[in-house]
Amino acid sequence: MSTTKWAIDPTHSEIGFKVKHMMFTTISGKFSKFEASIESEDTDFENAKIEFTGAIDSISTGNTDRDTHLLSPDFFDAAQFPEIKFSATSFTKVNEGEYELVGYLTMHGVTKSVKLPAEFSGLMKDPWGNTKLAFSLEGKINRKDWGLNWNSALETGGVLVGEEVRLNIELQFIKV
């Protein structure tokens, strides 16, 4: 059986996240520089090899001061840990169009296993004859599990930055 290789289409993909600010508003951000690939034996993608790398210095939350703080040693420490990486250990079909993605997420020098639900949007040919596929991933991680511990207490109780990070990832791949 032959292996099919897929490369990320970065212009039609988004690596997004959301975090609570002051415990009552949500701040959104994204990474704008990233690479990803899939190698699969068949079109149901079970047990596909999935790799992802993102550049920490491409983080954007729409606020330069906040982005600079996120790159500092208080958070990602981009000078010492310039990339976020993910490597799948399993990709299992749960139902039609629904998968469970399990793998190792490495950031800030820490590697932990994560499990994310994935929705397969299908295969399609674009107007130029390229075969494309798309996946949507959503999930939650606790930033403290990766040593991203900085926070500030609020006078009213609670903290400035939430621990839970919600992931919202849209990926489009092109057949190589």
Results as ranks from 00 to 15, higher is better:
I59E: 05
G29A: 00
L116Q: 04
D67C: 02
V19Q: 07
K33N: 12
T68C: 06
G103D: 05
A48E: 04
A36Y: 04
F81E: 01
V114W: 07
S72W: 05
L70A: 01
A118L: 05
T68A: 10
W128F: 15
T68E: 15
E51F: 11
S40Y: 01
E39P: 08
D44L: 07
I59T: 07
S32C: 02
K33A: 10
F91A: 00
T4G: 02
M107C: 06
N130L: 14
Q172A: 10
T25K: 06
T4V: 11
M23T: 10
P127Y: 09
F120G: 04
V110T: 11
G147K: 07
S152W: 06
D44F: 06
R66Y: 03
S136N: 15
S87T: 15
P127E: 08
M23C: 03
K140G: 08
I38Q: 06
T3R: 14
D145K: 07
H69V: 03
M124L: 15
K140T: 14
N151I: 00
E170S: 13
P127K: 02
I8G: 07
T25G: 02
P73L: 00
F86C: 06
R143D: 02
I27F: 01
E14L: 13
I84E: 00
D65A: 13
T89V: 12
T61M: 02
T92V: 12
N142E: 15
E14V: 15
K175C: 13
Y99N: 07
S60M: 10
E51K: 14
E170A: 11
S72A: 00
M107W: 09
H69L: 07
S136R: 14
E119F: 12
S13C: 05
S136V: 13
D42Y: 03
V165M: 04
G122Q: 06
F24L: 10
T68D: 15
K18F: 04
N168P: 02
R66L: 08
G139D: 05
E100F: 02
N168H: 10
I27G: 00
E119H: 11
P73M: 01
R143K: 08
G103N: 01
S136I: 08
W146C: 03
I27H: 00
F52Q: 05
E163V: 01
G158T: 07
F76A: 03
E41L: 12
E14M: 13
E41N: 14
F135G: 03
G103W: 01
S152Q: 13
G147S: 09
F45P: 08
G129F: 05
K93M: 08
G109L: 09
V94D: 14
P10H: 04
V94Y: 10
S2D: 09
R66K: 06
T43C: 07
F45N: 05
V110R: 11
R166V: 11
E83H: 10
R143E: 01
